[in-house]
Amino acid sequence: MSTPHPAGPTPPTGLAARQAALVATLVAGAPVPAGFVTDRVDAARAALLRKRAGEVARHWPLLAAGLGDAWWGTFRDWAAGRPTAGSLRDGWDLARELRDRGALPPLGAEELVVREAAHHYDGEQPPRHRRLPAFARAGDAVALQFAGRVRLLRPARR
Rank of each mutant, 00 (worst) to 15 (best):
S2T: 12
S2H: 13
T3W: 14
H5D: 12
H5P: 05
T10M: 14
P11N: 06
P12L: 06
P12D: 04
P12Y: 09
P12H: 03
G14D: 12
G14E: 08
L22T: 05
A24N: 06
A24S: 09
V27H: 04
A30G: 06
A30Q: 03
A30T: 01
P31L: 10
P33G: 04
A34R: 14
V37C: 12
T38E: 15
R40L: 14
R40D: 12
R40E: 11
A43H: 12
A44H: 14
L48T: 05
L48N: 13
R50L: 12
R52D: 07
G54L: 07
R58W: 12
R58A: 15
W60L: 04
P61W: 04
L62Q: 15
L62P: 05
A65D: 15
G66L: 02
L67V: 04
G68S: 05
W71R: 01
W71M: 06
W71S: 09
W72E: 15
G73N: 15
T74G: 01
F75N: 04
R76L: 13
R76W: 13
D77G: 13
G81R: 04
G81K: 07
R82W: 09
P83K: 04
P83D: 10
L88W: 11
D90E: 10
W92A: 06
L94D: 09
A95P: 07
R96I: 07
R96P: 05
R99N: 14
G102F: 02
A103K: 12
A103L: 15
L104R: 02
L104P: 00
P105L: 01
P105S: 03
G108I: 03
L112I: 03
V113Y: 09
V114F: 00
A117V: 05
H120K: 09
H120N: 13
Y121R: 00
Y121M: 10
D122H: 03
D122Y: 08
E124G: 05
P126I: 09
P127W: 07
R128L: 05
R130I: 00
R131N: 14
A134L: 02
F135V: 11
F135R: 14
A136F: 05
A138I: 08
A138F: 03
D140L: 08
A141L: 01
A141R: 00
V142L: 08
A143W: 00
L144F: 12
A147H: 10
A147P: 03
R149I: 08
L152D: 10
R154V: 09
P155R: 04
A156E: 00
R157A: 14
